[in-house]
């Protein structure tokens, strides 16, 4: 009899706590962004397609469905780390099959060599090239993501990828190294 009572008590308690937990789970549910949106927000949006998907959003969807997180060369290590944090997996080195991490670049059209074929305009994923047929084209460097996609279609190879120069505005206070301490602040010129 005592055993039955004990079991009953325990069972009822379990039910009650279960109900409380269940209620709490529903009542205090933390609404998060859908995973794909979160991943997409981490990706650099260069839309370069180096990952093998036609743009960053499709790659974000692929990651959400279990694809590797190390296929994004423009994002590089930093993006992989953020993705690893987000997905709760180990960060891994960039997959060399998809390219190398590089300094930030923008496309530049050598305008006197441009023949106005519009092929780069068609290739640009963010409409950052302006021009018309038989007219010289140019890159809106502020809008260029440095995806490289316009370089190949150019029949006259007049598009260069130029590294973005550091300006006094974007300078990050990294003074040359000294050796001691975490921030090195000394140098002899």
């Amino acid at each position: 009899m005592t055993i039955v009572t004990a079991l009953l008590t325990l069972g009822i308690l379990a039910l009650i706590f279960g109900a409380i937990l269940g209620f709490a789970g529903v009542r205090f549910k933390v609404e998060g962004d859908p995973l794909v949106e979160q991943i997409d927000a981490v990706l650099p949006q260069t839309q370069c397609g180096q990952c093998g998907y036609p743009g960053c959003k499709p790659y974000a969807e692929a990651i959400a469905n279990g694809d590797e997180i190390n296929k994004c060369p423009p994002g590089g290590e930093a993006t992989i780390k953020k993705l690893a944090d987000l997905m709760g997996v180990e960060a891994k080195p960039l997959d060399a099959a998809h390219g190398q991490e590089d300094v930030k670049k923008v496309a530049f059209i050598r305008e006197d060599e441009c023949i106005g074929c519009t092929k780069c305009i068609v290739a640009c994923p963010v409409d950052a090239i302006v021009g018309a047929a038989k007219q010289m084209h140019t890159v809106i460097s502020d809008e260029c993501t440095g995806c490289d996609l316009c370089v190949d279609p150019c029949p006259v190879d007049c598009i260069d990828m130029v590294p973005v120069d550091q300006t006094t505005g974007s300078w990050d206070w990294k003074l040359p190294q000294s050796g001691k301490g975490d921030i090195a602040i000394k140098v002899v010129q």
């Binding site: 206070w173 003074l175 040359p176 921030i183 602040i185 000394k186 140098v187 002899v188 010129q189």
Partner: peptide, 8 residues
């Protein structure tokens, strides 16, 4: 001149 650079 040889100049030292450092942070304030």
């Amino acid at each position: 001149m040889k100049l030292r650079v450092s942070s304030s």
